[in-house]
């Protein structure tokens, strides 16, 4: 049972990686002059939308936590609205945190905000899909021994690696190499993307290696 779970996890993750790759190559068929570095903001929007959609679809298809107690329409609608509010909140709070970390306050607002959006896509959207708009559950997942399934475990890993990737992405900015990708926030968004992808790859493998040690309460 566990192995099949891990396999499902792996396939969903492969879909996510595939969506990111698609977001790099598909738009050049429709848009002229599309390239990640030069029309970075466009790519950010496309990647964010695509990853969100893929996440949602995968969630609906795979249904990792199938035990939905209530299924009335109004409940679902409020839940959806709540999710949207949470997503926006996370975008804004990321924006604030970036500014606190030294991002320019007045200039490049759109760039900073889109970076916040893409980071939310990589972190908040999977959380929303898996855990719903339930802050306490989120907080629980991100404590030591707080995870209850391999899905939560992989969520933990991908989220943390996205953050770490975005964080590491800030390091090349001061270097004097004068490359186009050193401009704020391109290196950070690329770092977040790489981190997310790495997390997607690593988490099934890590869970597979440690499957003997991992014991969850619900399993």
């Amino acid at each position: 049972m566990k192995d099949t779970d891990i396999k499902r996890l792996l396939y969903t993750h492969l879909f996510c990686i595939f969506s990111i790759i698609l977001s790099i190559f598909i738009p050049s068929f429709f848009l002229e002059n599309f390239s990640i570095l030069e029309t970075h903001l466009t790519w950010l929007c496309i990647c964010s939308v695509l990853v969100t959609v893929v996440n949602l679809v995968l969630y609906l298809v795979v249904k990792p936590n199938a035990s939905s107690k209530r299924s009335s329409l109004s409940y679902k609608v409020t839940r959806l609205l709540k999710c949207c509010v949470y997503f926006l909140m996370s975008c804004f709070s990321f924006h604030v945190i970036f500014v606190l970390y030294g991002a320019p306050l007045i200039e490049l607002v759109l760039e900073t905000f889109l970076f916040a959006v893409i980071l939310s896509t990589f972190t908040t959207v999977p959380c929303l899909c898996l855990l719903g708009p339930n802050l306490k559950a989120w907080l629980r997942v991100f404590t030591r021994n707080g995870v209850t399934s391999i899905w939560e475990n992989s969520l933990q890993i991908t989220t943390i690696s996205s953050f770490v990737g975005a964080w590491l992405g800030a390091f090349p900015i001061p270097l004097d190499w004068e490359r186009p990708w050193q401009v704020w926030p391109i290196s950070c968004t690329l770092g977040a993307t790489f981190g997310y992808t790495a997390g997607l790859v690593i988490s099934p493998l890590w869970i597979y290696w440690n499957r003997k040690q991992l014991t969850y309460k619900n399993n």
Binding site: K136, L139, R140, F142, T143, R144, G146
Partner: peptide, 14 residues
């Protein structure tokens, strides 16, 4: 938070 010192334990029901 990771060490669980940020939240009251009642939240950590598991």
């Amino acid at each position: 938070h990771w060490e669980g010192q940020l939240l009251p334990p009642k939240l950590l029901t598991i």
